[in-house]
Design a protein around this nucleic acid. Structure first.
Length: 425
RNA sequence: GGAGAGGUGGCUGAGUGGUUGAAAGCGGCUCCCUGCUAAGGAGUUACAGGAGGCAACUUCUGUCGAGGGUUCGAAUCCCUCCCUCUCCGCCA
């Protein structure tokens, strides 16, 4: 959420920065609401001060012997009542404006950071670096073809169980997925991340806190009978892990590695990535998440990205790093590095991790602060996939495929999968 | 699902109508004393918003789960809702 004081006092600057995302934004109406709200607050608060003064005086006079039912006190009572009525009217207007203001503010995305490259579409994302040597060969299979051969998962029967865009991993496929989750968690916890296994049903407040609500309700699955949703990413529950808390400064940074299944409705993606593991309603992900002191979030962003890259490197998967331009930036992010893994079968780089710095955007929505000495400040939050497990499997299949139809696994994974290669059983 | 208890400051925990924004303890911060990884003393310390000031800070309002109500005045009385805990039932 944007700082409402900034919107009130500096709307042109804010509008200009939001405009970098590609859509012109007009904040004049919002600014007006903010100003009216403040004016009402002033009037109301002055009246209340007067009312408090009268209340105290009544108490004092009665204490010092005045007749509680005498004219003197009755007069004061009447004054008190008159003020109360005026306050009630002002309060009602003020409340309307405040909630209008809040609702609108919740609908605006984060301000891109200064360093975030300007752009009009994903074509303007900037490639920062590459790692590894992409395997190029037109005769390579796509991951779903390999998986079919090795019977790693069953999509047709999954339609029977749920619907399309669900997958049932089986045999070596299930084992690989499980091994990958453990592998990633072990790697991260060995570097000091605290492991988290959060609830996958989350309430509206949690989704609002991390930025999915109110704007992206149609992207998540909702439980109709309860105020609960299937989490689209562990970022949501982990953000709310510290919602409404003041974290002592000496405890920062807090670094979490959370595994969770993730659920997304993928509205509007009909026909895209319909085969295989790339785009599913349910997928597994290990998410890295930092709560940091606002002075240290920039370094943290480099580090969390490096920690996500470490997984790809350990799995010997070639990838590139993109610095997302303003047009491609997510709602809550100030700046984002996407990691794209090389899929030789598809002959393309595909997103496998997204590492974002959110500044105080989520912290303000979730009221997560830190205190050092006297000052209370909003913390900064960062998140990065480390990694999306299904897409990792796809990358392993395509990169490890052998002429004999088997798939050679990276050495680091062997202890986790219990075999060096996947082959027909 | 049934019965009961409870939601107070960073934490623990007092407080049943009028300087209670809130005792006490813990924790934090500042200073003093002392000094081998510690102890003692004094002071200070809620959050949010508004106004004034370059600032230190001053001042006003609101906040004791949320929302209503009674009252000149509510943490305290009344109503509704939410949440947590305990016991029973059910259950992996």
């Amino acid at each position: 959420m944007l700082d409402q004081r900034l919107v009130r006092d500096n709307p042109e600057t804010i509008a200009q920065q939001l405009g970098r995302r590609g859509k012109a934004v007009d904040l004049t109406k919002l600014q007006l609401i903010a100003q009216q709200q403040r004016d009402l607050e002033q009037q109301r608060s002055n009246l209340q001060a007067e009312g408090n003064r009268i209340g105290k005086e009544v108490g004092q006079r009665i204490k010092s012997g005045a007749d509680p039912n005498g004219d003197e006190v009755a007069e004061l009572r009447q004054q008190g009542n008159a003020i109360k009525q005026k306050v009630a009217v002002l309060e009602e207007d003020e409340k309307k404006l405040s909630s209008e203001l809040k609702q609108q503010l919740l609908g605006f995305p984060n301000l891109p950071s200064e360093a975030c490259p300007d752009g009009r579409s994903e074509d303007d994302n900037i490639e920062v670096r590459r790692w590894g040597t992409p395997r190029v060969d037109d005769n390579l299979d796509e991951h779903w073809q390999i998986a079919e051969r090795l019977q790693l998962f069953d999509t047709e029967r999954s339609v029977r169980i749920a619907q399309s865009r669900f997958v049932t991993l089986m045999g070596q496929g299930a084992r690989l997925e499980r091994g990958l989750i453990n592998f990633m968690l072990d790697l991260h916890t060995s570097k000091g991340y605290r492991e988290v296994l959060p609830p996958v049903l989350v309430n509206s407040a949690s989704l609002t806190g991390s930025g999915q609500l109110p704007k992206f309700a149609e992207e998540s699955f909702r439980c109709a009978e309860d105020d609960l949703w299937l989490t689209p990413t562990a970022e949501v529950p982990v953000t709310s892990l510290h919602r409404d808390e003041i974290i002592p400064a000496d405890q920062l940074p807090l670094r979490y590695a959370a595994y969770s299944p993730c659920f997304r409705r993928e509205a509007g993606s009909y026909g895209r990535d319909t085969r295989g593991l790339i785009r599913l309603h349910q997928f597994n992900k290990v998410e890295l998440y930092w709560f940091v002191h606002p002075d240290h979030s920039e370094e943290a962003h480099q580090q969390i990205t490096a920690d996500a890259e470490a997984v790809l490197q350990a799995l010997e998967l070639p990838y590139r790093v993109l610095d997302l331009c303003t047009a491609d930036l997510g709602f809550s992010a100030r700046r984002t590095y996407d990691l794209e893994v090389w899929l030789p079968g598809a002959g393309a780089y595909r997103e496998i991790s997204s590492c974002s710095i959110c500044g105080d955007f989520q912290a303000r929505r979730s009221s997560i602060r830190t205190k050092a000495g006297k000052a209370t400040k909003l913390v900064h939050t960062l998140n990065g996939s480390g990694l999306a497990v299904g897409r990792t499997m796809a990358a392993l299949l395509e990169n490890g495929q052998q002429p004999d139809g088997s798939v050679l696994l990276p050495k680091s994974l062997v202890p986790y999968v219990g075999r060096e290669r996947l082959q027909p059983e």
